[in-house]
Simulated scan of single mutants.
Amino acid sequence: MSDLGFLFYTYLFLINILSFGIYAIDKRRAHYHCWRIPEFVLLGLAVIGGAYGASMGMWLFRHKTLHRSFLITVPLCLVLWLLVLAWICYTNSPSV
């Protein structure tokens, strides 16, 4: 694997961990009626690569599951990022 590939996969891993953690923090703040993380930040994390972490945070914490914008944007971003990963794997696979 090239250095660029390693950096890309490391980025995706870290952004998904961050996204999952931010959803957990926002759910905790919602439970205690504290200051909340803006929705554009939560959705933005999914857009920039944290869609898997966001979807796992939504599912595990039952957070933002009734908001239409989240029910559309997060799964759409997840599918798009999976397509990007599939394309990268396909184009970088050795020829047979």
Score class of each variant (00 low, 15 high):
Gly57Cys: 08
Gly53Gln: 02
Asn16Lys: 06
Asp3Met: 11
Tyr32Met: 03
Ser93His: 13
Ser55Lys: 12
Val79Phe: 12
Gly50Tyr: 03
Leu7Glu: 01
Ser69Gln: 13
Ile72Ala: 02
Gly50Lys: 02
Ser2Glu: 07
Leu43Trp: 11
Leu82Gly: 04
Glu39His: 11
Val41Glu: 01
Lys27His: 06
Leu14His: 05
Pro38Ala: 11
Asn92Lys: 14
Gly57Leu: 06
Leu76Gln: 01
Tyr90Ser: 10
Cys34Leu: 15
Trp59Ala: 13
Phe20Gln: 09
Ala24Arg: 07
Phe13Asn: 06
Phe70Leu: 05
Ala30Lys: 07
Ala86Leu: 10
Val41Trp: 13
Phe20Ala: 08
Leu82Ser: 13
Tyr9Ala: 06
Val96Arg: 12
Leu85Gly: 00
Ser93Phe: 11
Leu71Lys: 13
Asn92His: 15
Ile17Asp: 09
Arg29Asp: 02
Gly53Met: 02
Ile37Gly: 09
Gly57Asn: 05
Gly57Arg: 07
Leu43His: 13
Tyr11Gln: 08
Arg62Ile: 02
Tyr9Met: 11
Asp3Val: 09
Tyr52Thr: 09
Ala86Ser: 09
Leu12Pro: 10
Leu4Tyr: 07
Ile15Thr: 11
Gly53Ser: 03
Trp87Leu: 12
Leu82Val: 00
Ile22Gly: 03
Gly44Arg: 08
Leu83Gln: 03
Leu71Tyr: 00
Tyr11Arg: 09
Val96Met: 05
Tyr90Lys: 08
Ile17Gln: 07
Leu14Met: 15
Arg68His: 04
Ser69Glu: 14
Cys34Gln: 15
Phe70Glu: 05
Leu18Tyr: 12
Ile48His: 01
Val47Asp: 00
Ala30Trp: 05
Ile72Arg: 04
Val41Cys: 14
Thr10Trp: 07
Ile72Glu: 01
Trp87Asp: 05
Leu71Met: 15
Trp81Met: 06
Asp3Trp: 13
Cys89His: 12
Trp87Asn: 06
Met56Asn: 07
Ala54Trp: 02
Leu76Asp: 00
Met56Gly: 00
Leu45Val: 08
Leu71Arg: 15
Leu80Asn: 02
Ser19Val: 07
Leu45Lys: 08
Phe13Val: 08
Leu80Met: 13
Val47Ser: 01
Ile72Trp: 07
Leu43Glu: 07
Thr91Asn: 12
Asn92Asp: 12
Phe6Asp: 00
Ile22Met: 11
Phe13Met: 14
Ile37Ser: 09
Arg29Gln: 12
Glu39Met: 12
